[in-house]
């Protein structure tokens, strides 16, 4: 069962923990090994984002990804672009450039006896709509 590989990413997946460069202010997500502690500080990102592009996945890679699922490239307010699902939304409600907000959702369950993997997804703003 895949436990450690999901567990070790929990801070990034649950609350968008990225990193900011101490002198340039550049923000990265996710934090990678090359973002060394002597120059980069942990930074939880706000979750505010903008839709860069999206698709409707009708042939999913696993039975867990209930089709049709909305897959997107999302530009975080702090700069990084990430891949995530769009949730609570129909494809016809989406347009490139629209604002989105981060929510934490169940990304998948690793089988009926397995771990539930939680992580970020994005949705159109609820309020103010």
């Amino acid at each position: 069962m895949e436990l450690p590989r999901h567990w070790r990413l929990r801070a990034a997946r649950y609350r968008l923990l990225g990193a900011r460069h101490r002198s340039t202010g550049e923000v990265v997500f996710p934090r990678e090994p090359r973002h060394a502690a002597d120059a980069w500080d942990d930074l939880p990102l706000s979750g505010a984002a903008e839709l860069y592009s999206f698709s409707v996945v009708r042939q999913p890679a696993t039975d867990d990804d209930a089709p049709p699922a909305l897959l997107a490239l999302v530009r975080l307010a702090e700069g990084p672009l990430i891949t995530a699902r769009i949730t609570d939304c129909r494809a016809d409600e989406l347009t490139i450039g629209m604002p989105l907000e981060m929510v934490t959702r169940a990304l998948r369950a690793l089988g009926p006896d397995g771990l539930i993997v939680y992580g970020y997804a994005f949705r159109p703003l609820v309020w103010p709509a």
């Binding site: 590989r5 698709s55 042939q59 897959l71 490239l73 891949t83 699902r85 998948r108």
Partner: peptide, 26 residues
């Protein structure tokens, strides 16, 4: 694709090309 940061979200190669296509169109 990147298993930890793309695959886990249900990304497929086809969907990734599709996202590039939509952005290109835009």
């Amino acid at each position: 694709s990147d298993a930890d940061w793309e695959g886990v979200h249900g990304a497929t190669l086809t969907a990734q090309w599709a996202m590039l296509m939509r952005r290109y169109m835009h």
